[in-house]
Design a protein around this nucleic acid. Structure first.
Length: 425
RNA sequence: GGAGAGAUGGCCGAGUUGGUUGAAGGCGCUCGACUCGAAAUCGAGUAGGCGGCUGACGAGGUCGCCUCGUGGGUUCGAAUCCCACUCUCUCCGCCA
């Protein structure tokens, strides 16, 4: 959520940020609601002040055994008026919140202009996007020939965009999760958490999935539970409604979770393979940082995610998203895109974002800079470190051999019981 | 799922015949005094939010309002009375 004060005092700045995202927001409405709210509040407070003073007077009179009926009669009217004003205030505040909650975050000045993917900026490339000596097969063919992923039975038992991993495939998925968690906890200093996979609507509101993107998620009918689309949701909400000790910052968390996405509106896109599933695994990085350090932390977090791909020997590039391609809550995002030789393209495998205080304001996550100082909102960051299913897909395509086998990246072998390659049965 | 108990400030813990209790007391913490220094002792301070005025939309100052799990009700007035909900604990049942 944006700061209403920023909107009040600097509407042009907000309008400019929204325009860069390709949005025209009717800011006059906000200003009008805000002004109305404050004028009602002032009136109600003046009346409350009157009531409080007179109530003391009444108490004094009663103690002295005197009558106070005329004052009580006056206060009856005052209380009635206060109630009316409170109702009006509540209505205005609800309206204002409703409008504020659907406004996205403003892009950071370092974010380039642009309206979509094609305007994103490649900031660096790692590894060689090599073409293989033979005609590479897409990862789902590699997987099916090895019998390690069962797409058909996934569809039978659950539906389209669900799979069973089997044998070495299941083990590969599990090995990657452990490999990533170990790297981030042991080398990069993150503290592991294992979060709930279902959260309530308050948490979804905090990170920005609700109210605007309800259709992208699975909702357990008859309850207030939603299946998490990413561990970012429970982990960022860990410290909701808390004031953190400034000495603890920055806080680094890493979490494995299954992720569930309805993929509404994605009909026909990536229908084959592991790229776009309703359920997938992900290792997620989340940071809570002081505002003045958050952009430095974003760079470090991106490097931490990159190291996963480097150790696995997967060629990738880092892309800075343009203003028009930014996610709802993000002020600045780097995507990591990994090379897929069969498709001949780079595909997103990680997304690292600084949400600044946008989520912190919604979820009310603050920190005390020093003793006696006022609490301030933290900056929240999140990044995939990295998407596991897509990593499996990338390994299958990049490490496939002409005979149909797949070499296990050396860094992963300790997690695969020393296995050097997956071969057809 | 059934029965009961409870939810107060960073923590512990008073306060329920409604009226200087935003909140006693203790602990913790901060600052000061004492000390060569520390401990002990003494003194002062120690929640958050919102708004008005002042000031530059800053810092600061000042006035006021709200918050004793959450929401609603009764009342001139509610931490205190009533209702609903949430969460925690204990016992029973069930279960990985």
């Amino acid at each position: 959520m944006l700061d209403i004060r920023l909107l009040r005092e600097n509407p042009e700045l907000v309008a400019e940020g929204l325009r860069r995202r390709g949005l025209a927001a009717p800011l006059e409405l906000f200003l009008e609601l805000d002004a109305r709210r404050r004028s009602l509040l002032t009136e109600a407070e003046a009346l409350r002040n009157r009531r409080n003073t007179v109530s003391e007077e009444i108490a004094r009179l009663k103690r002295a055994g005197r009558e106070a009926e005329d004052l009580i009669e006056e206060m009856r009217g005052v209380s009635r008026r206060i109630k009316e004003l409170d109702e009006a205030i509540q209505a205005v505040e609800e309206r204002l919140a409703q409008e504020m909650l659907v406004l996205p975050n403003l892009p950071h000045p370092s974010v380039p202009d642009g309206s979509g993917e094609e305007d994103n900026l490649v900031v660096r490339v790692w590894g060689e996007a090599r073409s293989l000596a033979f005609e590479p097969r897409p990862h789902w063919e590699v997987a099916e020939r090895l019998g390690i992923i069962d797409f058909e039975r996934g569809a039978k038992v659950a539906g389209a965009r669900f799979v069973f991993y089997r044998g070495a495939g299941a083990k590969l998925e599990r090995a990657l999760i452990n490999f990533m968690l170990d790297l981030h906890t042991e080398k990069h200093g993150y503290t592991e958490v294992f979060p709930p996979f279902l959260v309530n609507s308050g948490a979804m509101l905090g990170t920005g999935q609700l109210p605007k993107f309800a259709g992208d998620m699975f909702h357990v009918s008859g309850t207030d539970y939603y299946l998490i689309p990413t561990a970012e949701v429970p982990v960022t909400n860990l410290y909701r409604e808390e004031i953190l000790d400034g000495d603890r910052l920055p806080i680094y968390h890493v979490a494995y979770s299954a992720c569930f996405r309805a993929e509404a509106g994605a009909a026909g896109r990536d229908t084959r393979g592991l790229i776009r599933q309703h359920q997938f695994n992900k290792v997620e990085l989340v940071k809570f940082a002081r505002p003045e350090e958050s952009y430095e932390e974003l760079e470090k977090m991106t490097r931490d995610a990159e190291e996963v791909l480097q150790l696995l020997g997967l060629p990738y590039r880092v892309v800075l998203l343009c203003a028009g391609d930014l996610g709802f809550a993000s002020a600045k995002t780097y995507d990591l895109e990994v090379w897929f030789p069969a498709a001949g393209t780079y595909r997103e495998i990680s997304s690292c974002s600084n949400c600044e205080d946008f989520q912190a304001r919604r979820a009310n996550i603050r920190f005390r800079p020093g003793p006696k100082e006022k609490p301030r909102y933290v900056h929240t960051l999140n990044g995939s470190g990295v998407a596991v299913g897509r990593t499996v897909a990338a390994i299958l395509e990049n490490y496939q051999q002409e005979d149909g086998s797949v070499v296990i990246p050396p860094a992963l072998r300790p997690y695969m019981g020393g296995l050097e390659a997956i071969r057809p049965e």
